[in-house]
Amino acid sequence: MLDPRTGRLISQGRNMPKVTYIEHNGTPHSVDVPVGTSVMRGAVDNNIPGIDADCGGECACATCHVYVDAAWLPKIGLPEQGSQEGAMLSFAAVAQPDSRLSCQITMREDLDGLVVRMPEGQH
C-alpha cells in the first residue's frame, strides 16, 4: 500500500520501525523510518541536522556518514571488502571502524530501534 501523503510504500499491519539519530552534540532524534527506505532518507525527510547527503543516495559523496551503535553493528554489518562504500569511507573525514554511509543501509523490520551517531562534520 502507498502512503497517500508521501507516495512511499508503507508496511501493512505492523508498527513503523524507529531509528534514533544522535547529533554530534548529543541531541537525539527518534523518528519513524519506513521499511525499504534508507537510513539517510529517514534523516533528510525529518530535517535532522548532521546528514548532508549531497548526492541523494548514490554512494558518491560520503556526506551521509554515520557511526552505527555497537549493539546494532552485528545486524547491520560493515561495508563489503572492495565495495564503493568501503573505498569512500576509507578517506572520509573522521572515519572509524563503525562507520557506514547511511544511504547504503536500507530499513528492515528487524532494525526497529536502530541507533546511529553523526560525526562532527560531513565535509
Binding site: 501523503r5 508521501t6 507516495g7 512511499r8 533528510v44 525527510d45 530535517n47 543516495g57
Partner: peptide, 8 residues
C-alpha cells in the same frame, strides 16, 4: 518519491 528532495 525517490526523486523528491523531501516528501510533499
Amino acid at each position: 518519491a525517490d526523486l523528491l528532495l523531501r516528501p510533499a
